[in-house]
Nucleic acid binder design. Structure first.
Length: 563
RNA sequence: UGGGAGAUGGUCUAAUGGCAAGACAGCGGACUCUGACUCCGCUUAUCGGGGUUCGAAUCCCUGUCUCCCAGCCA
């Protein structure tokens, strides 16, 4: 596993600048970061940015990055998600080593900190209902009002809080609140809730607790307990920072991590929100969290994206404080870039059209040599069977083709990749006028693809030998949404913008026989088509299923589309 | 409306008082046994207005716009 970021002259982002400064001034000797997911869903591409940042920054500074599950809300969390998250972080290429933590492991310590706060007169048990509390909180212009329970004695609060823990109160009857400032312009400082009663069994602590700490109380203290130096989170937590600092300052903790906020990743033509992804899964609008159209890490993995390409993508988009929308094309470019250099090439016909080489001997077969990678000889060669009956791509033939169409048409000559030059002599149609077969002649002198007379042939097309080809199902994916910003309008549900053509299943594709040995971890370029991999869930030796990871750039389609 | 944050080509990112740079997209061309890759060229930007300065994307003032916050979610 090599996830080391090569040392370059690339300027440091603002977070790395802060950290470099902290090291230079000896504020910290060692850097410790953390990636703190809540196990209430699968990780997506947005998390990848955070993972790469946190693990990357730690590695660059010979520090440590913890994986900590922020599991303080048992209503939504499960071990299934914990396992999926661990798998995905590992897959992305990062290793937390022994530093696997759970906020739930701190519940006892957290409880003691809460007691300490009460003893300091900085927290109280409040019996206001949720509705009342909202009213008391005030609004944007008006300060909040003090809760009538705010001045309970320390002894009473201690007593009440213990009763809360012992399950003597029903859910919703009371909470523990910090005593800060009901007039603060920052709502989070208007006596925020620290603990609530939830009589829900927790996936790790079972029924040991019936009160659970809130995020703002848990996160800073968890960071502190783990000696985190830099607590990196997204912009929406900027308002939470004063509270983060208040808890640690008030408790006078020996360690006070610095929270730094950065802009979350947004990508157009998709949604990156666990809630919305969950909705797609629960409504069966996709096949699951790992549907190859989803930008979850498991979806990207199944789609065929490499961890390296996702890391390169995350590095490329940078880290800043300005909210931005990354074009989906940048992600696609990252995987193309990787696969262009690393994926062996093969021939595969997605929409087969039969070709008979009329002057080729019947019942004869030969094998032709093909390069696995035209720019990289080290990837070696392979043999391709050739015979009288072939399949070519239907879109590589056109009747009454324009001059710029460098492919097959009646009377025109093209090269079959690594094979022969052929000329189309006759077009066979069915009763509906549909082209069903082509009769061609080949130039026996052009074996390998070059004519001895040196004549130039502009077009080269891919093919497979009919009798030797493998039949396969191929799934073509397109962006999941038709709108660039599917969740932009709060009035219109994002699901209205699902792309009906985001999945196209081709059932009669014909692939070169070498693909029979392909394994789920292999990725190939089907020449002139795109990059493909075996579908890890549905493919079998009896029924091959390939996913299209991404298309090749297609300047012909662009040209043709203009007309 | 109170508070917090942010505005650089179509999109993202850099320049940290000294020639506004790079990536992606787009356009044009070269090359090509993948209309791929690669290579070359081009178009396009400092939110507005004032100020400080020899010099401002950067510092100051002011205006505008966008995002976040009124969960017993994280």
């Amino acid at each position: 596993m090599n996830t080391e970021t090569p040392k370059t002259d690339k300027p440091l982002d603002f977070i790395r600048q802060i950290i470099a400064e902290d090291i230079a001034t000896k504020k910290h000797e060692e850097i410790t970061t953390r990636f703190p997911p809540e196990p209430n869903g699968f990780l997506h591409i947005g998390h990848a940015k955070s993972i790469c940042l946190n693990f990357g920054v730690a590695a660059e500074n010979n520090g440590t990055c913890h994986l900590r599950f922020d599991d303080t809300n048992p209503d939504k969390e499960s071990t299934e998600y914990v396992e999926a998250i661990k798998r995905d972080v590992h897959w992305l290429g990062y290793d937390w080593g022994e530093h696997l933590y759970y906020a739930s492991d701190y519940f006892t310590q957290l409880y003691n900190f809460a007691v300490k706060l009460i003893e300091m007169g900085k927290a109280y048990v409040c019996h206001l209902s949720g509705e009342e509390m909202r009213t008391y909180r005030g609004n944007l212009t008006e300060p909040g009002k003090k809760s009538p329970y705010r001045d309970r004695s320390i002894a009473e609060n201690l007593q009440l809080f213990e009763q809360m823990r012992n399950g003597e109160f029903d859910e919703g009857t009371c909470v523990l609140r910090a005593k800060i400032d009901m007039a603060s312009p920052n709502f989070l400082m208007r006596d925020p809730v620290l603990y609530r009663i939830m009589k829900t069994s927790h996936h790790r602590t079972g029924d040991k607790w019936c009160i659970y700490p809130m995020y703002d109380f848990t996160h800073c203290l968890s960071d502190m307990l783990e000696n985190i130096t830099h607590s990196l989170c997204t912009l929406e937590f900027e308002n939470n920072r004063p509270l983060y600092d208040w808890v640690l300052d008030t408790l006078q903790t020996p360690c006070h991590p610095q929270q730094i906020e950065f802009a979350r990743l947004n990508i157009n033509y998709t949604v990156t929100s666990k809630r919305k992804l969950l909705e797609l899964v629960e409504d069966s609008l996709v096949s699951g969290w790992d549907d190859p159209r989803m930008l979850t890490l498991s979806g990207l993995r199944r789609r065929g994206y490499t961890p390296a390409s996702i890391r390169a993508f995350c590095e490329g988009i940078g880290v800043g404080k300005r909210e931005s929308w990354i074009d989906m094309g940048i992600l696609e470019n990252a995987i193309r870039d990787d696969l262009n250099t690393n994926a062996p090439r093969v021939l595969g016909v997605l929409d087969p059209l039969k070709v008979v080489i009329t002057n080729y001997p019947e019942d004869s077969t030969e094998t032709l040599e093909a390069l696995n990678h035209p720019q990289n000889n080290q990837m070696g060669k392979r043999m391709l069977p050739f015979s009288r009956e072939l399949f070519i791509e239907r879109s590589d033939f056109m009747e009454n083709a324009p001059k710029k169409f460098f492919r097959l048409s009646e009377g025109r000559e093209v090269r079959l990749r690594y094979a022969y030059l052929i000329t189309c002599a006759k077009v066979i149609k069915d009763e509906n006028g549909e082209v069903v077969e082509l009769h061609c002649t080949y130039d026996p002198e052009s074996r390998g693809g070059n004519a001895p007379d040196g004549r130039k042939v502009k077009g080269t097309i891919h093919w497979v030998s009919a009798a030797h080809s493998l039949q396969a199902e191929v799934r073509l994916y397109d962006r999941l949404f038709t709108e660039e910003f599917p969740d932009a309008d709060k009035e219109i549900p994002f699901k209205n913008f699902l792309n009906p053509d985001s999945l196209q299943v081709l059932t009669d594709c014909r692939l070169e026989p070498n693909l029979a040995n392909a394994s789920a971890s292999d990725r190939f370029q089907f020449e002139r088509q795109g990059y493909f991999c075996i579908d890890s869930e549905d493919s079998s030796a009896q029924h091959l299923v390939f996913n299209r990871i991404v298309t090749l750039r297609d300047s012909w389609a662009k040209l043709a589309g203009k007309k």
